[in-house]
Measured scan of single mutants.
Amino acid sequence: MDVFMKGLSKAKEGVVAAAEKTKQGVAEAAGKTKEGVLYVGSKTKEGVVHGVATVAEKTKEQVTNVGGAVVTGVTAVAQKTVEGAGSIAAATGFVKKDQLGKNEEGAPQEGILEDMPVDPDNEAYEMPSEEGYQDYEPEA
């Protein structure tokens, strides 16, 4: 019985440690998101679009440190934060509304985080759909 109880105690310690790591990862992701939003706020009209992409990228980098179902929630929060940063930029006159959601080359930025393969159960990952990809044929 002692062996059984000791095993359960060790398992509990492992769960607590994993929860603490997840909590730490979420806190880091939130900190990076805040950094990115402050970065966007300090940019001029020309830099705002690039700044919004930076927020998304920093958040995406930190999301990889967070495991399990938390990833889905962090990704949703990050996307809403990026959308909010863009709205703030438009409201303050840093950028025109028609410039939001495009990178410096004018290509749409939507789907940055949505296409990231995420499995809350950590069982399997699927690649994003290939609808947006084109076949590449090298020139002879």
Rank of each mutant, 00 (worst) to 15 (best):
Y39G: 04
M116T: 05
Y133C: 05
K80G: 03
Y133D: 05
V26L: 13
S42N: 09
T44Y: 10
A90M: 14
Y125T: 07
T81D: 02
G106F: 13
T81L: 09
A11I: 07
V82I: 07
T75M: 05
G93S: 03
I112V: 06
E46M: 13
M127I: 11
A27V: 13
V74E: 01
Y133A: 08
G25F: 15
Y133P: 06
A19H: 01
A89C: 13
T33W: 15
F94Y: 12
G68A: 14
A91S: 03
A69C: 05
K12T: 06
D98R: 08
K60I: 15
G25K: 12
V118S: 10
K96P: 05
L100D: 15
V26G: 00
G132A: 14
K96D: 11
A91P: 04
D115S: 02
G36F: 14
D2M: 09
A140C: 08
E57K: 06
V55C: 08
A53D: 02
P138C: 04
I112K: 14
E20A: 06
G41A: 12
D115N: 08
T44H: 01
A69G: 06
K6M: 14
Q24T: 09
D121C: 07
D119P: 13
H50E: 11
P128R: 05
N103S: 07
E83A: 08
L100N: 13
K32W: 05
A27I: 13
S42F: 04
K97C: 07
T75S: 05
A69M: 08
V63W: 13
Y125L: 13
V48G: 01
A29Q: 02
T54W: 14
G68E: 11
E137N: 10
I112P: 02
V66R: 03
G25P: 01
G73Y: 14
V63N: 01
G84Y: 14
Q109R: 09
E137H: 06
G132E: 14
F4C: 02
A90Y: 05
G36Y: 14
K10I: 12
Q109M: 11
I88Y: 05
D119C: 12
E13W: 06
V40R: 02
E137I: 11
D135V: 03
K80S: 06
L113F: 07
K32E: 00
G93E: 02
V26A: 02
H50Q: 03
N103F: 10
M127S: 11
V40W: 15
V77T: 03
D119H: 05
E35N: 02
Y39P: 00
V82L: 13
V70E: 02
N122K: 05
T44R: 01
A91G: 03
D98E: 07
A30F: 08
E139G: 06
Y125V: 07
G41D: 00
A11C: 11
T44S: 01
P138E: 03
A30T: 08
A30S: 04
K96C: 07
V95T: 07
L8V: 04
A85L: 14
G106Q: 14
T92W: 15
V26T: 02
N103A: 05
E13I: 01
F94L: 09
V16C: 12
G73D: 02
G47Q: 08
P138H: 08
G14S: 06
H50G: 10
E104D: 10
E105N: 07
F4N: 00
K6Q: 15
V95P: 12
I88L: 08
G31A: 11
V52G: 03
E104Y: 15
K21I: 12
D135W: 09
G51D: 01
E114Q: 10
E131Y: 01
P120C: 06
V26K: 00
S87K: 09
Q99F: 03
G14L: 09
G106H: 06
L8Y: 07
V48A: 04
V82Q: 01
E28S: 09
K97D: 10
S42C: 06
Q99W: 04
T64N: 06
E126W: 12
E131D: 13
E35M: 06
T22S: 03
T64C: 08
I112Y: 13
A140V: 07
N103K: 12
G31L: 11
G84M: 07
K12S: 03
N122E: 07
K96Q: 13
E104I: 09
V95K: 13
G7C: 07
T92M: 04
E139C: 01
Q24A: 12
G51S: 07
V15R: 00
V48S: 00
T44C: 10
G84Q: 14
L113K: 05
G36L: 15
K58Q: 05
A76W: 10
K80D: 02
A11M: 03
N122L: 10
K58R: 10
Q79E: 13
E104R: 14
S87G: 02
E123V: 07
G86K: 10
V26C: 06
H50M: 13
N65S: 11
A124L: 03
G68T: 10
P117D: 05
F4K: 00
D119M: 07
A56W: 10
A85I: 10
E46P: 02
A107L: 11
Q79G: 04
D135K: 05
Y125W: 13
M5V: 10
T64E: 06
E123M: 07
V82C: 06
E131F: 07
A17Y: 08
V74N: 02
F4M: 00
V15P: 00
A19E: 00
P120E: 06
V3P: 15
E130N: 09
A27K: 05
A19W: 12
V77M: 12
E83K: 05
G67N: 02
E137D: 04
A11F: 03
Q134M: 11
A18G: 07
E57Q: 13
K80A: 06
E137S: 07
H50C: 06
G41S: 05
P120D: 03
K45P: 02
V74M: 11
V52A: 12
N122W: 13
G47P: 02
E13R: 01
G14F: 14
G111Y: 03
D121P: 08
K102S: 15
A78H: 03
Q134P: 07
G132K: 11
A78K: 01
A90V: 14
K97V: 05
E123A: 07
E35R: 09
P108D: 03
V55M: 13
K21N: 02
D115L: 13
G86D: 07
K97R: 11
A17W: 14
P128T: 05
T64F: 12
T75V: 06
D135Q: 05
A140W: 15
A107S: 10
T64K: 10
I112L: 03
E131C: 04
G7P: 02
M127N: 14
T75F: 12
G84I: 11
V74D: 15
V77Y: 01
Y136D: 00
H50I: 14
S42W: 08
A85H: 04
P120K: 08
A140M: 01
E104L: 09
Q134D: 07
G106P: 06
N103D: 08
Y136L: 11
M5H: 15
E20Y: 07
A76V: 07
V118P: 05
S9K: 03
T81P: 01
P120R: 12
K102R: 11
V74K: 01
G106R: 13
A124K: 06
K12M: 14
G73S: 02
E139Q: 08
K80P: 02
S42L: 04
P128M: 03
G106V: 07
T33M: 05
G101P: 07
D121K: 04
S9D: 04
E20W: 04
A69F: 14
E20N: 03
E130M: 08
I112F: 08
E123W: 10
E83I: 02
A27F: 12
A56R: 07
E20Q: 08
P120T: 06
G86S: 06
S9Q: 09
A56P: 01
G31M: 03
E28K: 09
E130F: 11
V40N: 00
K60F: 11
P120V: 02
L8D: 00
V118Y: 07
M5Y: 15
M116K: 08
A29L: 14
A90W: 10
E46I: 06
N122G: 04
G68V: 12
A17L: 14
Y125P: 12
D2P: 01
K34G: 02
V66I: 10
P138I: 08
T33F: 15
G132Q: 09
K21R: 11
G84L: 12
D115F: 04
Q109E: 02
A27D: 02
T72N: 12
D2Q: 06
E131R: 12
E61T: 06
